[in-house]
Simulated assay, not measured.
Amino acid sequence: MRVPFGNVKSFAAAAVLVAAAAVVPAAAPAASASAAAGTPPQVYGAWQCSNDACTWATVRDMADFDQANHWLIDRGDGRPSVNLVVLSFVNPLTLLNGTTNSGNTNGVPVGMNQAVVNYFTSHGIRVMLSIGGITYTDDWNTALSQNPTLLGQKAAALASQLGVGMEIDYEQSAGPNTAGLQAFIDAYRAAHPYDASGADPTARLTIDVAAGDRWLIDLDQYATANWLTTSKPVLDYANAMVPSKQPSASGAESNWQEHLAGKSNYSPAIPPLAPAKFTGSLYIAEGSQVRPECTDFPSSVTSGTSAWTQGAAPAGAGTTTGMLGYMFWAAERPSTRGVTTTPPNSCEGGVGAGATALTVPVPMPPLRQN
């Protein structure tokens, strides 16, 4: 879960997740292989929130944007710190309605423009846009009830316009409109079919699920069973989002193991998810704290989980070892309160050093499919 604006609805959802995350296994299962023998991350990305708590409601001065975010394109030796940036967030209802106002043009935040996309792609970094976020959950529900097919078509047209992929961040914890979301995905895929090669950036379509299997349960079950299989993939992969606060290494591994194993005791059961079909997420800045994820890779949870994630074995789905990679929440200013990842808190020593230590490929290679 991510809390972009610090509003009442976000904190209420955070409280739900704190309760859901309170019961975790005492110890995470051991990794099936060492990091040396495991699979290096293929996805190593950051959600990007601009300077206004994820609204992107102003056009950025690109010199200022570079000063605030240079660490993303340069880990200190000229190589990018990440191979993916996800610009967060597009309001799904605003996109459906094609709203033009002070912060949007034809339904798209004015700050999510070609200049920002090119800033990253010119350095070999893939770009996606995230539709939703917890603040826009009600707007997802409204848009899916009104015209999910048109919403999917508009998302596909936006992907074509900017040359980007799309992420579904629909955080409806109970009774999500999966039929509407299916129609959205069908419409998007009609324009941009699944591309196993990864060559077409507009064909990249992903979804966010909870840190483990005990929140967003209905969405998790439906997505795992219908969209994230290795035999007939519809979405490229899922992101297991951050929990309410930075987990310990063992806590993170326990959450991610839930996706690997599924929940056979649920009705309907959540099937196992192939390691190659999801990433795990961690904070780089959280509240008033800059995490070691940003500044000190050797002491970070990323480092502490790296052997486990690279050696994570299939537990009922998939054939290859190792999770797909890591995502980090969030670059620049993810909330109106709290720290940012702008200088002096830029993240070359955390995310950037991790890219070197984990031999992250830039640009992103074709992703494992099984």
Rank of each mutant, 00 (worst) to 15 (best):
R2C: 12
P4M: 07
F11S: 14
A20E: 09
A22Y: 03
V23A: 14
A26F: 15
A27R: 01
A36Q: 15
A37C: 04
A37S: 14
P40Y: 06
P40F: 08
W47H: 13
C49F: 15
T55L: 11
F65C: 09
A68N: 14
L72P: 00
V86F: 01
V90A: 11
T94L: 08
T99C: 03
N101K: 11
M112R: 07
M112H: 09
V116I: 11
V117T: 09
S122Y: 12
H123M: 08
L129D: 14
T137S: 14
D138F: 10
L158Y: 14
Q161G: 02
V164E: 15
M166C: 09
I168K: 00
A174N: 10
A174W: 12
N177F: 05
A179G: 09
L181K: 12
Q182W: 05
A190G: 06
H192K: 02
H192A: 09
T202N: 13
T206K: 01
A225T: 07
T229V: 04
D236G: 06
K245S: 13
Q246N: 09
A249P: 00
S264V: 01
A276T: 11
A276G: 08
K277C: 10
S281A: 13
R291A: 06
E293N: 06
E293T: 07
P298D: 05
S306Q: 13
W308M: 03
W308E: 02
Q310M: 14
P314M: 02
A317P: 00
A317V: 02
G318N: 06
T321H: 06
M323G: 12
A331K: 00
E332G: 00
P334H: 03
S335I: 02
V339R: 07
P343N: 07
G349F: 11
V351K: 01
G352R: 06
A355C: 06
V362E: 00
P365Y: 11
